[in-house]
Every structure is written in C-alpha cells, then in structure tokens.
C-alpha cells in the first residue's frame, strides 16, 4: 500500500502554519491569535474540551470557514482553492454521497478535479477500497453499509485525492463502539505506511498516543500545552490538561 501514496522526502519543513489566527462566532472568540505549525509528514493530534476550537482549525484549513484575522499558510502559500486540493478531510458523520455507489464516491473527485481518466481513477479507487477492507463493496450504496464501513469508504475517498495533508475530524465519534477499532486500525496503517501529514481531532486517547508525533492541548481558543504524546499523557504540566485527561479517561 505504501507505494499507492507518494513518499515525500521527510524533512522538518513546515507544511501547515497558522499565524495569529483569530476566529469569532458572534461574541464568542473560538480561536484567539493562534500560532502553530505542523511539519511535513508529522501526525499531530488536537485534544481539549469541546468548544475549545479544535474542529474550527480543521474547518479553517478546509476553507469551510475563513479566519477573521491572521493567515494560514500551507506549503508556504496562503490557503486558496488550488492549495486546498492538497488537503483531504474525513468527517465525523462520514458525509458520503448517498446518491452514488461506493466506487463512484471514491472516483468522483479524482476524475472531475484531478482530471484522471475513468480507468485510472477506478484502479486507484479499487486499490484504496481494498486497503480499507471493502474491496467487495464497490457496488453498494452508502446506506447499505455499517457506520464503520462508511467511514472507511470516506477515508479511501479522501486518500484518492493523494492529499499532502489529511484532516481527521472526530472520525470515530459517530460510530458504535464495536466498529471503532476497524476504522482506527486503517488509520494506524496509513499513519505508519505513508508520509501524509495528519491533523487529527479525537477523543480516542489511546489512538492519539499511538499515532501522534505531537499532541496539542487546546483550551479556550489557545494552545496551552504541546509535546510528544508520552509527555502530554504521562506527565502533563498544565492543570487544565490534567483535569481534561482525567475526565476523558
């Protein structure tokens, strides 16, 4: 599978950079002059209480929201439609297209955005669906699949665009407990075998510990603590982090 997704040279070059980004909804400031960056190929997990602005970061990167102040750079370029093509996202609610079969969900964007030929796109999609364990569901409609299967299709759909950055927005929150492991296994696989930069919002602390190079603890729109997972989970410095971790465990 590792050959499916291009191996970029590992370097510590910054791929994603937030500069003094502020985002408000009405009177609430969700992100408050946020600075942070993610290096090429790293896996960064955002944790923190709900409402702390984690998901907002992903939505800003996906251009589903625009910042009120500050700027966001990806690969040194300000975020725009062209840059966004290099970013993939997996949603909490899967958001598969219910009117399309599984295979077409995965080929739709490669054909119509990247301009791949139908055959190329189908081949790529089949490989990815095989990888997520759904090689036998190509002709199913999303509603005929379990939540876990749908989420794995959504992962394949995002990867089919060969993104440099993959955003994971609470991808297991909407799943029945017994289906969570299958999805997380697929993601672990991808994290291990590829060089995609991952930004992940999750409440699965074990998963965060497994895949992350770095964990950012958010509270009230700011990063209050960041570091390798062993340190954040093992010896958190900040009081709020300790509270949060003991609450979610």
């Amino acid at each position: 599978m590792a050959t499916e997704i291009p191996h970029q040279t590992t370097s510590d070059a910054e791929l994603v950079r937030f500069e003094q980004v502020t985002k408000r909804f009405g009177d609430t400031t969700v992100l408050d002059r946020l600075d942070f960056s993610v290096e090429q190929g790293k896996h960064v997990t955002l944790i923190g209480p709900s409402g702390s602005g984690k998901t907002t970061i992903l939505r800003l990167l996906m251009t589903l929201l625009t910042p009120d102040e500050g700027r966001i750079l990806v690969g040194g370029r300000p975020l725009d439609k062209e840059v966004r093509k290099g970013i993939g996202m997996v949603f909490q609610q899967f958001n598969l297209f219910p009117n399309m079969r599984v295979l077409r969900n995965v080929t739709e964007a490669p054909v119509h955005v990247l301009g791949l030929s139908k055959d190329e796109a189908v081949e790529r999609a089949k490989g990815l669906l095989e990888m997520v364990g759904l090689g036998d569901k190509l002709d199913a409609y999303p509603t005929q699949l379990s939540g876990g299967q749908q989420q794995r299709v959504a992962i394949a759909r995002a990867l089919a665009m060969r993104p440099r950055v993959l955003l994971l927005d609470e991808v297991t929150s909407a799943l029945d407990p017994e289906l969570v492991a299958g999805v997380l296994d697929v993601l672990r696989d991808i994290a291990r075998s590829t060089d995609i930069t991952m930004l992940c919002v999750t409440h699965e602390m074990n998963f965060a510990r497994d895949i992350s190079d770095r964990v950012l603890m958010f509270d009230a729109g700011r990063v209050i603590e960041s570091g390798p997972p062993e340190r954040i989970f093992g010896a958190p410095e900040h009081e709020r982090t300790r509270e949060f971790l003991s609450a979610v465990r």
Binding site: T63, Q93, N95, M100, E108, V113
Partner: peptide
C-alpha cells in the same frame, strides 16, 4: 440536503457546477 454534503464536496474540491449536478 444536509450541510455535510456541501462540506464533503468542498473537501474534495469539486467544482461548483459538479457539486450541483452530481451531489
């Protein structure tokens, strides 16, 4: 049509026209 469908189309960078006609 749920907002998630628009968001997914954006996340895949589908052109506006294609988003309307296919999704």
């Amino acid at each position: 049509v749920p907002p998630g469908q628009w968001e997914a189309a954006t996340a895949l960078s589908l052109p506006r026209r294609r988003t309307w006609t296919a999704v």
